[in-house]
Nucleic acid binder design. Structure first.
Lengths: 196, 196
DNA sequence: AGCAAAGTTGCGCAACAGGCAAGTTTGGGA
DNA sequence: TCCCAAACTTGCCTGTTGCGCAACTTTGCT
């Protein structure tokens, strides 16, 4: 009768625990000075189990971002089908970020971590790329028939994610001068002119 | 007196040899069934030396793409300073791809490899990301003073590379129906409307 | 000719991904 | 309520990797 079984919940909890352990250790010792062993320990699980959940530390570290972005994707899905893809994406982003965006402390912490440790940039890019293809599928659904090769869907998704990524990185360099969402909204508006 | 010393040339040759060895073996056995050892052997060099040139197989595999893209960046640099960044980028791409783009057999081979082995997608994304930041620097030079936070430069570079990447991937799925550059040009035109 | 800088190599080690099989937990019938 | 199959965890193990270090070789400059 539970909406989702115990099994599922336990899995999610373990994944989350691993993620949080990774983040905690990375913040404390620096992301390049931690081992998978240490993360598993910190999460109270065997090293082998870590491998069942994540392919490597970076994936564990950015799991939170992926979750956040999946939440954004859900908002996109919830937008009225009548909206154009780009409109739906920006509207969903507005909902997602405008209110409490900058306030998630974990999100900010991860951001700062990336800023201070350029070696993490690769993993960040990877995370955005993952979401890009998930979003492309959603966009494609809105373009049934109008996009024979599927270029447009992928183009829109890629551009959207690229703008969010660039905005994030710029904001991390100038966090005091502007809010993330202000920056992102403006960038989206400018870049999106091709899709309206 | 030589324009470039023997030292430099030898290094370039070794790097190229490693790259070609990696590509050859990947094509023959599949990219996930080859070891760094094997690549170094094939290139007639020690495993340790491989590490002096590339951080991992993927980097070796995509070295050719990076070279290609750097050539494109050179074309960008050569465009008149009076052109807007986006105009310079697209014009350079036109020069680069329009003529012989699809004809470089290595380039096509790598493309097919990525298409058949999704595990390589990560490395491909990484390669484009690398070029993105190199290009951003070039674009920034054209926006002296007009781009206080540096957003615009990064935005333009990111969008440009995203379009090329998406176009490539779409083209790889439909190579018969259209030429790469036709597809990319159209995508650039559409997406670039925000930057004109 | 000769020396300093750059490049190569072998050795060694900590770390890691992931196959396999034995144990443990969960959930859906009967 | 009980039971079993499927799902999950864990330990063990192997092949691979990235990189520091120190010895050796090659290159370039004078």
């Amino acid at each position: 009768m539970t909406a989702v079984g115990l099994r599922e919940r336990k899995k999610a909890a373990t994944r989350q625990a691993l993620h949080e352990a990774a983040l905690r250790l990375a913040l404390e010792h620096g992301p390049d000075r931690i081992t998978v062993d240490a993360i598993a320990d910190e999460a109270g699980v065997s090293r082998r189990t870590f491998s069942n959940y994540f392919a490597n530390k970076e994936e564990a570290l950015f799991h939170g971002d992926l979750r956040r972005m999946r939440a954004l994707a859900d908002l996109v899905r919830a937008r009225p089908a009548s909206e154009s893809p780009w409109a739906a994406l920006t509207a969903a982003a507005e909902e997602h970020y405008a209110g409490l965006g900058d306030l998630d402390p974990e999100w900010v912490a991860r951001g700062r971590l990336v800023r201070r440790h350029p070696s993490l940039a690769a993993a960040q890019v990877q995370t955005f790329a993952t979401m890009e293809s998930e979003l492309a599928a959603e966009v494609a659904a809105r373009l049934q028939g109008q996009d024979p090769l599927g270029v447009r869907a992928k183009l829109v998704a890629a551009t959207f994610m690229a703008v969010l990524r660039v905005s994030l990185n710029v904001w991390l360099e100038h966090p005091a001068e502007i809010s993330y969402w202000e920056l992102a909204r403006e960038s989206l508006a400018e870049t999106g002119r091709g899709f309206t």
